[in-house]
Design a protein around this nucleic acid. Structure first.
Lengths: 262, 262
DNA sequence: TGTTATGATTAAGAATACATAATATAACTT
DNA sequence: AAGTTATATTATGTATTCTTAATCATAACA
């Protein structure tokens, strides 16, 4: 009973797509490539797709700090209207990925030391408590999974594959947060710590080789196995703290950000 | 140049306002009363008004746990369209105040022990780190302000005004978070801890009189003055932990939630 | 030549319109 | 009368339209 053969007598041209023939910029290509990944994973909801795509683009510096995110352009790239795009931007704003300048639009959160420090102060604390809870709640198999991740980190380091190591390091920490069995904590840490990824990418060649990191991971796992939650908390916190120092020092020793102008 | 005298040949009645003559429910009255407060404070952006109004209604149990928040109805009450209302609901969902059931709508987050425990685990940790940072960053005058708040708490307790005490207790903790000078931390703690307010209201007659709380606040302030950040962190954390225990115990000893049905 | 109006353009803010899924209701068959 | 199917209603999801503020270019003026 599809009676849709009598409802198109007025739209000669949809006004919002006057801006068609968008230039195939690097951003558009990257976002579209990422989108197809989502299609495979069956993300059906449009706002969720937009959220993941924009977040991914920011995370990988394809949307550089300070850059304005135009709703219309994003909608065009993502093949949807402005509405779900805006919804995703509101969510990203709540999480701190973008800032809303009223009547101006959304800009990608700048990558400045002050901001990173704020994020680290949050993540260090939450990461610590997640480790404490995980120590109480993890099974032996889950701890073995952590050990496996550490081994992969060692391999990546031996190959000097810092990109792979970064991802594995993330996986290690995320997994611990998972083990805390606190979805709310998980959500906050996930979003906040992921915002540090940009800075890690950005400074990847300017930091010492993270051999110490693997050592500390091993120590943390050992104390988890020993069942000492409070010690795990402290260790994770100082582990993150050293990471913070290295990143901030690297940022200072580096040439100024490409979008320092904002 | 108002040429709106020739465009109404089809809409006999605007479809979105068929639901006019909305019953003057308690919710509508409460929300409208709160709205006028915002007008005074000059909140010009509609989504922000909606955000504050809905959050306030949830916080004060006018929108009870489990209740569906109808976009159209809210829009009607707030005197705006669905668009800014939806935007506010997305933000509230990101913060955990409501849940989105796809194709069903937003419901007020249920008030169950499991959820409260998750919030407490987050807030205890962040509150602790905020106290640690505040100890390093607060001035003498700011510490005196804390002392003033404690005195007011004592007065409220003597009068057995538990509602006023609850607000003052909130102010005390919020102020410490302010002193951490970390806006991101502030935003997260603000939203999360404020979600506990519902539970505190709900259990207000079922908990022991919080005389110990004032004592602990005094102790915390003393250690802040002594300049021992790590001790402040520990104390705030266990302070919150006792609050958690009292709330959860009260919830269990109480009659089941009115919207337990969901 | 520099500065300030003024109009055109652009993009966000908000409202409305349309599409679709879910649910409630009514009709109908057995 | 009970259950099943068809239909109507309702509310979300999404697109589109309309409005308004901000910016940019251009022109008028000092």
């Amino acid at each position: 009973m599809s009676d849709n053969e009598m409802n198109n007598q007025k739209n000669t041209q949809t006004p919002d797509s006057i801006t068609n023939s968008l230039d195939q910029s690097e951003l558009a290509l990257a976002v579209r490539s990422f989108l197809s990944t989502l299609d495979v994973n069956g993300e059906s909801r449009l706002p969720q797709r937009a959220y993941l795509a924009v977040r991914h683009a920011i995370r990988h510096l394809q949307l550089p700090p300070g850059k304005t995110v135009l709703e219309r352009e994003m909608a065009e790239i993502l093949g949807m209207s402005r509405t779900p795009v805006r919804e995703s931007l509101v969510r990203l704003e709540t999480e701190g990925w973008v800032r809303l300048i009223p009547r101006r639009g959304f800009i990608v959160a700048p990558l400045v030391a002050d901001d990173l420090q704020q994020i680290y102060e949050v993540v260090e604390s939450l990461d610590g408590v997640a480790g404490r809870l995980a120590t109480d709640r993890a099974t032996h198999e889950e701890l073995n999974q952590l050990e496996h991740l550490i081994k992969e980190q060692e391999i990546a380091l031996e190959r000097n594959d810092l990109l792979a190591w970064t991802d594995l390091d993330d996986q290690f920490h995320n997994y611990i947060v998972d083990l805390s069995q606190n979805p709310r904590l998980r959500g906050i840490v996930d979003s906040q710590s992921d915002q540090l990824y940009r800075a890690r990418l950005y400074t990847i060649g300017y930091r010492p080789k993270p051999t110490h990191s693997v050592i500390e991971h091993k120590a943390i796992l050992a104390v988890m196995r020993a069942g000492e939650p409070e010690a795990v908390r402290t260790m994770l916190q100082s582990h993150r703290y050293r990471a913070r120092k290295e990143i901030l020092e690297a940022l200072q020793s580096m040439p100024p950000s490409p979008e320092e102008t904002l």
